[in-house]
């Protein structure tokens, strides 16, 4: 049956595309000039899921997503809300097509994330710990 063979092919494709990024050490960062010292996991969830994009300082929060190919994005949402990207996409389909909030700003490359964050005081992003330089400040660390 056609449908069955489509299912099988799709499963094989997604299995071979799976990238093991479970060990990536992801931290949530903001611009060093932001005036924000730390965010709770709830704050970060509210900002990235578009529920409430306001920083503790009262300023607007601007969420920035890593490119999907980096694997960081999948790891971030797994750590934050234990959801895979299909669920996050489905969540955004609901909000987007009911005319509510838009998803985070989607960067095209990892270096674009760094550039955007460096010039956006209200920006909130995530990256590997080793990418954090003097321009940035870690506001939430998932590792105990």
């Amino acid at each position: 049956m056609n449908l069955a063979s489509t299912f099988i092919v799709a499963t094989l494709i997604s299995a071979t595309n799976a990238v093991d990024v479970a060990r990536a050490d992801v931290v949530v960062v903001m611009n060093a000039q932001s005036g924000v010292e730390r965010l709770s996991a709830d704050d970060v969830t509210n900002i990235f899921l578009g529920r409430y994009r306001r920083l503790p300082s009262g300023a607007n929060a601007i969420a920035i997503d890593q490119p999907t190919e980096s694997g960081l994005k999948a790891e971030f949402y797994r750590q934050l809300v234990n959801k895979d990207l299909a669920e996050i996409n489905s969540y955004w389909a609901r909000l987007y097509f009911s005319g509510k909030t838009s998803p985070p700003n989607q960067a095209a490359t990892q270096s674009e994330v760094l550039n955007l964050l460096a010039r956006t005081p209200g920006g909130v992003a995530y990256m590997e710990r080793k990418q954090v330089d003097a321009r940035f400040k870690i506001v939430l660390d998932f590792s105990p």
């Binding site: 409430y52 994009r53 306001r54 607007n60 929060a61 996409n89 489905s90 969540y91 389909a93 609901r94 097509f97 009911s98 005319g99």
Partner: peptide, 26 residues
């Protein structure tokens, strides 16, 4: 971030999720 308004034609929210009930993927 705390206050939003919309004006025009939009989906009804009689019940929770009722404005996205035609978006199957969601």
């Amino acid at each position: 971030p705390a206050f939003t308004t919309r004006l025009g034609r939009m989906g009804t929210e009689f019940y929770m999720l009722s404005d996205s009930r035609l978006v199957g993927y969601s």
